[in-house]
Design a protein around this nucleic acid. Structure first.
Lengths: 264, 264
DNA sequence: AGCCAAACAAACAAAAACGCTCAAAACCGA
DNA sequence: TCGGTTTTGAGCGTTTTTGTTTGTTTGGCT
């Protein structure tokens, strides 16, 4: 929330006019440009505005910034995982695709598949797969979570109960050393459990960075997973657990991407 | 994402007019052609526009071609209807927005509203309204119908039953002389009835061309409608029915658009 | 096919905007 | 009033934006 009267006013102006300019605000408030820039940066950091050169505008992108950034991280790894996962999915399958950038990458790799029935609680997956005309898409209902395009809430769970999936492809925010799958949103617990129960096979897609992270909510365990697609050799401990639990680990090597990608 | 005010404006112009020309933008913004080209290239790189010689056009997104065409028809009328409808919707309302290009136009006009709760069975509405951070969005589940982005099927109905709407804004494919609302998909019948039952007020948005069309399935009647926003005076017969049924007809005049638009 | 003008992309330099840092000023509770 | 914190403004090097110039590509025309 705004820290000062000025920031509050700036927000007001932005809402009224759609945009604010540093220069205008300087004269309007009689403070230095630096101060205004600081205000705008803070308002941008807390998500109220979007910074542009010379000022700021009301935020109006589809998903939030953090997500767009996240989508870019480990892009190559995600693509490789998605590729491996998608070739293991036969035409004609009934699928579930969950929330997360990696499952979205899987969706993008399913554009060539035929006669799929895909159920998802991820609006981005739906938008992506809409390009595949041979794919029936069912969206679970629910509240749209802007941070990642997920549809969450009890609606989602009740919809999932009506299906029986050949394969459920899920992601997670982090993987603990003891094989627990972690997420940031406790609402995901019910959804995950529902999915695992309704799927003949549960596949986890998660790049190696997930081992280096943590998250507060336990949504499941690698024990519930039949196949685990990831991008680097598993930690010793986790590998042992997978053996014990019969979880097939598929380690894929990301395509070398020699060209440096300029920040788009 | 747009880096500058200008890019944002260009996008806005593109959305309004379907395309932009380098030359026009040069005079409009008073910058060099090279700068405009740079803008267009960046907007194209990030997927917002499609570059063509001499300018750029809107990228056709999720939905299919026929729909994109339809979206263009009576654009001015739809915008005027949407404008009138949206100003009648108070901040903080709980809304339902149905399937159709006109309801999508309403969604676009709700971007400035605050604290809305919008339930929809139209994925395009969700995509549009995602830009309004002060708007809670709930998607009904269902099968994604590519032809118009609608979510259809029994899932939709069961989700709708869980809400009570202040206003339900619906469209239809055609309006018969006897005041019946017609559609092409019989699955819509259940959804429409559900919506009308769950809403304190039902508003119909439909431009005048709907009187000149027909469609096979009866999804409801003007009798069920509390307000009817349209773009040309009603046929005598229909007007009389509205009076009898207490249906408020709001006839709006589309903004005159003097410039001829070439087919995009 | 060949020609021409318009549109285009790349490179470069000037100008504007930017972020960082530090010290002065304002503020605040005791 | 005092000590500590927060806010602010100015200096300064860096980054971004922009117009110009150059040479290439494209589209229409004969």
């Amino acid at each position: 929330m705004s820290q000062s009267f000025r920031q509050r006013d700036i927000l007001e102006i932005a809402r009224a006019e759609g945009r604010v300019r540093v220069e205008d605000l300087v004269t309007r408030f009689g403070v230095s440009a630096q101060t205004i820039r600081r205000d705008l940066s803070e308002l941008a950091d807390s998500g109220w505005l979007e910074r542009v050169h010379g000022g700021a505008v009301l935020r109006s992108s589809v998903t939030n910034i953090g997500y767009e950034d996240r989508r870019d991280t480990n892009e190559a790894a995600k693509a490789a995982i998605a590729e491996a996962c998608s070739v293991a999915i036969p035409d004609g399958a009934t699928l579930f695709l969950g929330i997360g950038t990696t499952t979205e990458a899987v969706a993008a790799h399913l554009l060539g598949h035929r006669e799929l029935l895909v159920v998802t609680n991820n609006i981005n997956v739906a938008n992506i797969l809409a390009a595949n005309r041979e794919c029936e898409i069912v969206l679970s209902g629910g509240r749209l979570r802007r941070s990642d395009g997920g549809l969450v809430g009890t609606l989602t769970t009740s919809v999932l109960e009506q299906f029986r999936f050949d394969v459920a492809v899920i992601g997670c925010s982090a993987i603990a050393e003891d094989g627990e799958l972690l997420d940031f949103d406790f609402q995901e617990v019910g959804v995950s459990q529902s999915i695992i129960r309704r799927a003949r096979a549960t596949w986890l897609v998660a790049d190696h960075s997930k081992f280096e992270r943590s998250a507060p909510v336990r949504v499941g365990s690698l024990r519930d997973v039949d196949r685990f697609f990831t991008s680097a050799p598993l930690p010793e401990e986790v590998l042992r657990l997978c053996r014990d639990w019969g979880t097939e680990a598929h380690v894929v090597a990301p395509e070398a991407e020699p060209r440096e990608r300029a920040a788009g």
